[in-house]
């Protein structure tokens, strides 16, 4: 079911050591592949389908995908926008009609150091 990162659209967020998709995943499921300059899911089975990564990707490179077993090739849900103006989703129904739904949203950029500053104490290794 999980989120799928489109490697044609993902650019690894350039030199970022921790791209937004990696930062927000509540389960540490997304990882950046530094050799290839892209991000990926470590193991799709660990994904909760929360779509937090879908919402923060600046290149809209992450797609919602249902497994064939559940939805055949249907089940199109696409994020159009996620900003302080709102979150906009696009739905395609089985008869081909496309619908957009907008809901209020807030974007938080939380730029805190990811590691505890070693200034407090660094053991010498045990």
């Amino acid at each position: 079911m999980p989120a799928v990162i489109d490697w044609k659209a993902c650019d690894g967020c350039g030199a970022s050591p921790e791209p937004p998709c990696v930062r927000v995943c509540p389960g540490d499921v997304v990882v950046k592949d530094f050799a290839r300059g892209r991000s990926r899911l470590r193991e799709p089975g660990e994904c909760w389908d929360c779509y937090a990564c879908v919402k923060v990707c600046p290149r809209n490179a992450i797609q919602v995908a249902l497994p064939y077993a559940l939805a055949r090739r249907n089940g199109y849900l696409h994020l159009v926008e996620h900003s302080d103006r709102g979150v906009v989703w696009e739905i395609r129904w089985p008869d081909g009609t496309v619908q957009r739904v907008r809901r209020p949203a807030h974007v938080e950029t939380f730029e805190e150091p990811e590691r505890v500053a070693p200034d407090v104490y660094s053991g010498d290794g045990i």
Binding site: A71, V87, W89, I91, R103
Partner: peptide, 14 residues
């Protein structure tokens, strides 16, 4: 969509 968006993906299929 505000709580479990995966459900809307399933409705989009069904």
């Amino acid at each position: 969509l505000d709580m479990t968006p995966a459900q809307v993906a399933l409705w989009a299929a069904e």
